[in-house]
Write a protein that binds this DNA or RNA. Structure first.
Lengths: 222, 222
DNA sequence: CGACTTATTGAACTAATTCAACGGCAGTGG
DNA sequence: CCACTGCCGTTGAATTAGTTCAATAAGTCG
């Protein structure tokens, strides 16, 4: 999924609306801002993100969608997409009906609510990180979250996982500049916190990285 | 960043569980971290907030609850409070049963879902602000959001509304230091963006403040 | 008043940004 | 094949937005 530049003949971004499956190439939109309530996608393969662009070009990515994620779950609450969603890699996704919350029940919906709940929780954690943490803590948080989310989906291999993000994308996720992301990653590498090369991430010491991310409670000098 | 100085009082924070109404004084908890799923409160009067504290004392406030808000709506999705909620002023609140999403319908629930949806939307906006905006934009965003939320509840008086937050609380909301909040407010005052004194906020030019906040360019056409 | 919290100001400092340049690598096109 | 182009990662130097430390004023409340 990382670099498989699959040259597709069709420039159509979506298959016919009656179809369940869709796929997208990097930079293609899964949803546009203020668009009509389209379907909700479940990502089957690849990465996507939601973001907002400020008038002067500053960009902040506000959610990352990995395989298994719904995209975007909170539309089911009645909102319209207020931010575009774009593919970061090649993406395979499944189109799901956009159900109102009161009309839902059953097993699949249970998973869906949990997914929404998780997204809110992650989002809240990022408020703390963006508001109060240092560059290194921010990047550590991101890489750790990626690894752990992928691990939950069985997409890690020992201490490793795919990491297709460019440093500029990492910057837009962490609220830093690409240059500073670069320098921060170098520090993390020399400290042995991460190994990151050729779009693969290896985390030698998960505990140390958690410590560096200052995520939840941890013992520190009193 | 705000130093430790965590002086949350640990008095009894709730009235008897059979009662519908509860009230809290500043620094009292409406909910504690990782507590059992208690009731959901609807704030009837006063302000409260949800926050996270880092081991070294840095604090980030992750949600602000104003009159009319549910506290916290996303618990209905099955999560437990992962962050404490504390009263910022005197608070009157109504205790509501914690309903599972699948068992809900009707008029009141409609409002509840919209409330959750709004909270997610606001939270997403804050990701952008904390990640990518300048100090002045951050503070402008906060004051603007406060004013517009209070206006929706009929709690504004012309161009004015209550603003009980201390500069330190503003700092913990915007991810700045209290000192820098002070200086930023002074700049905003001299630019005529806000008048702020004696816990009252006046916004002479709403449009100018919106501009300064670099929010989405759209008047919220009441 | 006295104790405390909050607001304000100055000066030194630093984490992160900005600007600019260079090298590698992949895709493109002759 | 090679040159060309664009993107991405890397590095250096100068700058700046925001922090930190410290001290003083101003409000609040018993």
């Amino acid at each position: 999924m990382s670099r498989g530049l699959n040259r597709e003949v069709s420039m159509l971004s979506q298959v016919a609306s009656s179809e369940l499956h869709a796929h997208f190439r990097p930079h293609q939109f899964l949803a546009r801002e203020d668009e009509k309530p389209v379907a909700i996608f479940r990502i089957d393969e690849g990465w996507a993100c939601r973001y907002r662009l400020l008038p002067d070009g500053r960009r902040q990515i506000t959610a990352l969608y990995l395989p298994g994620d719904y995209c975007d779950p909170h539309w089911a609450l009645g909102g319209k997409p207020s931010q575009p969603i774009v593919a970061l890699t090649n993406v395979r996704a499944t189109r799901l009906p956009c159900v109102p919350p009161s009309a839902t029940s059953g097993e699949g919906q249970q998973a869906f609510w949990r997914s929404l709940s998780d997204m809110i929780e992650r989002q809240t954690n990022w408020l703390v990180t963006l508001g109060r943490k240092t560059a290194l803590e921010k990047v550590a948080h991101l890489l750790l979250e990626l690894f752990e989310r992928l691990r939950m989906s069985g997409l890690t291999y020992g201490q490793q996982c795919a990491m297709p993000l460019t440093q500029m994308e990492i910057a837009d996720l962490t609220g830093l500049t690409p240059v500073h992301v670069n320098r921060t990653l170098q520090v993390m590498r020399t400290r042995g916190l991460v190994e990151l090369q050729a779009k693969w991430l290896r985390i030698p010491d998960l505990r140390a990285l958690r410590q560096a991310a200052a995520l939840r409670t941890q013992g520190m000098a009193a």
